[in-house]
Amino acid sequence: MTEAVDSPTVDGDLLTLQQAADRLKVHYMTAYRWVRKGELPAFKAGGRLRVRTADLERFVSDREVDVARPSAQGQGTDWPTHVDRLHALLLGGEGVEAGNLVRKVVSDGASAGDAYLRLLAPALHRIGEDWAAGRITVADEHRATEIVSAIMARLSEFFRRRGPTRGTAVTLTAPGDHHAVPARMVADFLRAGGFDVHHLGPDVPLEDLTLFLQVVPNDVVCVSMSTPDLDKETERNVVAACRAALPDALVVFGGRGHRPERARAAGAESVEDLAELTERLDALLESRTDDEPTFT
């Protein structure tokens, strides 16, 4: 049971749990879960949970991340020009200059998340289109991918997380899809959003995925699909492998190659906006919570 959003504070520096959740901009049950885990300090007074404003402010500070959403500074960046330049550098195999370009964009105020979503991903997508059109070889495409991977390795320090965890996630690339970079981006955004992440990458046999999930506790499995013409049973097969280990496993598909209707038909969820991923997962996880609080 929850309470009204506008219920008053107690003694000036205390909040109800609903008010704390409102300030955190999360569902009430998310805040309640953090309290149960001991991550958000709270105590019971007058039959209700109370949170000190100082504890809430400390909790917010500990959960600060740099890249959960595109930055305001990134709004003024000339992204099309930078994408054109990076695309040319990737085609030419100029890894040092490509790295310098991305580093300059970030130093000028764009976040690492901006660099992923507005620069690296579009440039690499163009490389894929070049290969599909026969303008470059597989070797050229692989070289460009390796350059982007090296740049991401240097940017990974920006995807840092402090404080309590939102949950545990497993990330991987769908079977038959050999594009490793998108799933790595998902893993970094989840880390930035407060998740502990086990990143498995591409080419994981489904039977091995089942064994892994039987051993490693997790809250959600995120599957990247970049190739649109994968086997039409891919989603069903992945979900079946996950639920062979965890009958109630939350499986989420995303990426340019995934089809939301097929994900839903397989009993999975679909997320299309990487910048909104953690908030979407919060909502999905809370909708599956079985334990209701007995007091607020």
Rank of each mutant, 00 (worst) to 15 (best):
D229I: 03
D229H: 10
D229R: 06
L230V: 12
D231F: 09
D231S: 13
D231R: 13
K232N: 14
K232M: 13
K232F: 14
K232L: 15
K232P: 15
E233N: 11
T234G: 06
T234A: 08
E235C: 08
E235D: 15
E235A: 15
E235P: 01
R236P: 01
N237T: 12
N237D: 14
V238F: 08
V238K: 04
V238A: 14
A240N: 13
A240V: 06
A241P: 07
A241Q: 07
A241L: 12
A241K: 11
C242R: 04
C242H: 08
R243S: 14
R243N: 10
R243I: 10
R243Y: 12
A244L: 13
A244I: 10
A244Q: 10
A244E: 13
A245N: 06
A245P: 06
A245M: 08
L246Y: 05
L246T: 13
P247W: 00
D248Q: 03
D248R: 11
D248S: 09
D248P: 02
D248H: 01
D248I: 00
A249D: 01
A249K: 04
A249C: 11
A249I: 00
V251R: 02
V251F: 05
V251H: 01
V251S: 04
V252Q: 02
V252G: 04
V252K: 01
V252R: 02
F253K: 01
F253L: 06
G254P: 06
G254V: 04
G255C: 08
G255H: 04
G255T: 06
R256W: 11
R256D: 09
R256Y: 12
R256E: 12
R256N: 14
G257H: 07
G257D: 03
G257K: 05
G257W: 04
H258P: 00
H258Y: 11
H258K: 05
H258V: 03
R259C: 01
R259W: 02
R259F: 04
R259E: 01
R259D: 01
